[in-house]
Structures are given as C-alpha cells and as structure tokens.
Amino acid sequence: MAERGLVSAPVSAPAGNQPRCLVIGIGTRGHGDDGAGALVLDLLGQDTDRAGQLWRRDITLLTHPGPPLDLLEHLSGVNTLYLVDACRGGGDAGNRYRFDLASGPLPARRFGLSSHGLDLAATLELARALGSLPPNTVLYAIEAASFAPGPPCPAVTAGAAAVARALRLELGVEPDRAAPVSAYQGR
C-alpha cells in the first residue's frame, strides 16, 4: 500500500563496506509536476540488464512521496546521494538546475513551501549538522508549473528526461547520450 519503495527490480546489497549510492525521486505521482522526481526514477528504472539488475549493483533507486524530513531515514551508510525534485523558482517549466550540496546549502527560498516540519533545504542542513549528509550529495531540481491532478506537463516531462540522461552520465551509464544541465549559479 505504501507509495514509497524501490521502483526497479531490487538491487543487490553492496558487498562488504562498499559505499552506497542512493537516487531518490521526491514528490507524488499524479499530482501534476510534483511527479517529476518519480518520473525520472521511472526512466532510470528502465535501465536494467537482462537479469533485471540495475546497471550498477551499488545503486538504489527510491521514490519518496512523504515529507522531506523523512528522507533522513535513508541516509545511513550512503556515500553518494542524488535527489530529484520539482521546484518553483520563477523560471520556465521544465528548466533544470543542479545543486552540489558539498559547496553549501540550498537557496532556501526556492524550497520553502513545505507545510509540515522542515522543508527540503532545512532537512538537508539538519543532516549536515548531524553529520548524516552523504559527502557527495547533489540535487537536480526541475522547474514545475502546475500541481493539479494528472501527469507532469510536457515541458516537465521533457525536463525529467533530460535529468535522467544527466544522471546516467553521472552514474557512469550512456555517457554519449547525456544532455547538459546547468549548475545553479544563484539568482
């Protein structure tokens, strides 16, 4: 019944103390452009080999429709974390941004709409304060236009496809098909 869960075939646990890589799509399917994160995970989940395994055994894909604060439950033992979420930053729908959390906190005003507990920016800073933020943490944000019921709009769907391609590049898959996604330069 829970919406949260692996979106691809289960990936084998990494052997020994091998660092884990976690990719989390934040947001809720069916809530318009809020489903952008889940859509990216769906696209990545298609990249399985004939045995049904993801391209790399140390990568886990997870969708997270719950509050940002509950992301902290998943960070134990994670070395590399990629987050994908919808955002409202004033740009055109489908625009993509890449934030490297190693270089500092997120621009909070972009992610301040969470109603219960802490928003995403505050949650990641709480993780940093607790020493729980993975050393390699990157957020891909996709500019959203509408959260009305239904699938993401065409522009956000295209943006999700571009982010999936960029993630494949970062994760070491299909480098020749990657599309450029600009690093966020601040506004």
Partner: peptide, 11 residues
C-alpha cells in the same frame, strides 16, 4: 533559532 542550530550542539 531552530532545529538545525540546535542539532550542532545537541546532536
């Protein structure tokens, strides 16, 4: 001021 500041001193 908030939980983040508090977490640094009271993890």
């Amino acid at each position: 001021d908030g939980a983040i500041d508090m977490a640094q001193a009271h993890p």
